[in-house]
Amino acid sequence: MAQTYEELGDNDRALAALAEYVEKFPEDYTGYLDLARIQRRQGDLDSARDYLERAIIIEPRMPELLGELASLDLSTGRFESALSGYEGALASSRAPAQRTAALEGLREYYRFRGQMEEAIGMADARLDEAHAWQTPMQVAQDRFSDIDLYLDAGRYDDAVALFEELRSQLPPPVSDYQVPHWEIHIALGAEDGEAARGAYHAALDAMEAAEFGVLRPALTGDLGRIEELDGNYDVAVANYRDTMAQDPGRNFHRRTGRALRKAGRLDEAEEELREALRLRPADPRTHLEMALVLEAQGDTARAMEHLRSALAAWEFADESFEPAREARALLGAR
Results as ranks from 00 to 15, higher is better:
213 G>P: 02
212 F>A: 09
249 G>Y: 00
247 D>V: 11
227 E>M: 02
208 E>Y: 05
214 V>D: 03
246 Q>L: 15
198 G>V: 07
196 A>Y: 00
185 H>C: 01
212 F>W: 04
168 S>P: 00
190 A>Q: 05
200 Y>P: 00
202 A>G: 10
244 M>T: 15
196 A>R: 00
182 W>K: 05
214 V>P: 00
235 V>I: 09
205 D>W: 11
247 D>W: 14
233 Y>A: 03
253 H>D: 02
218 A>S: 05
258 R>Y: 08
221 G>P: 06
187 A>Q: 03
201 H>K: 06
234 D>H: 06
198 G>K: 05
225 R>F: 13
189 G>Q: 00
179 V>K: 00
249 G>P: 00
224 G>N: 09
212 F>R: 03
219 L>H: 07
217 P>M: 07
200 Y>C: 01
197 R>D: 09
174 V>T: 13
233 Y>Q: 06
189 G>D: 00
221 G>E: 07
251 N>Y: 00
206 A>M: 08
182 W>V: 01
251 N>P: 01
226 I>G: 11
253 H>R: 10
227 E>T: 06
231 G>Q: 00
240 Y>I: 02
228 E>K: 10
197 R>H: 07
252 F>D: 09
196 A>P: 02
253 H>Y: 11
194 E>S: 10
195 A>R: 07
239 N>F: 01
245 A>F: 12
227 E>W: 02
192 D>V: 05
175 S>D: 03
210 A>N: 05
250 R>I: 14
259 A>V: 09
223 L>P: 14
226 I>A: 08
236 A>G: 14
236 A>H: 11
184 I>R: 03
181 H>V: 11
203 A>P: 08
227 E>H: 09
187 A>I: 12
171 P>L: 15
219 L>D: 03
257 G>S: 04
216 R>L: 06
236 A>K: 08
174 V>A: 11
221 G>V: 02
233 Y>M: 04
170 L>R: 08
218 A>M: 10
234 D>K: 02
250 R>M: 14
207 M>T: 14
200 Y>M: 04
243 T>V: 06
216 R>D: 01
208 E>S: 07
211 E>Y: 07
204 L>I: 12
218 A>W: 08
240 Y>R: 06
225 R>E: 15
249 G>E: 06
191 E>Q: 14
212 F>V: 04
172 P>T: 13
249 G>V: 01
239 N>S: 13
249 G>N: 07
253 H>Q: 02
233 Y>N: 07
229 L>I: 08
197 R>E: 12
174 V>W: 04
242 D>M: 09
243 T>I: 04
225 R>P: 03
247 D>A: 15
255 R>P: 06
172 P>Q: 09
169 Q>K: 14
200 Y>G: 03
255 R>H: 13
233 Y>L: 02
191 E>N: 05
221 G>C: 04
177 Y>T: 02
171 P>I: 12
197 R>I: 02
183 E>S: 14
213 G>T: 07
184 I>K: 05
258 R>S: 08
202 A>N: 11
224 G>P: 12
194 E>K: 13
225 R>S: 13
170 L>K: 08
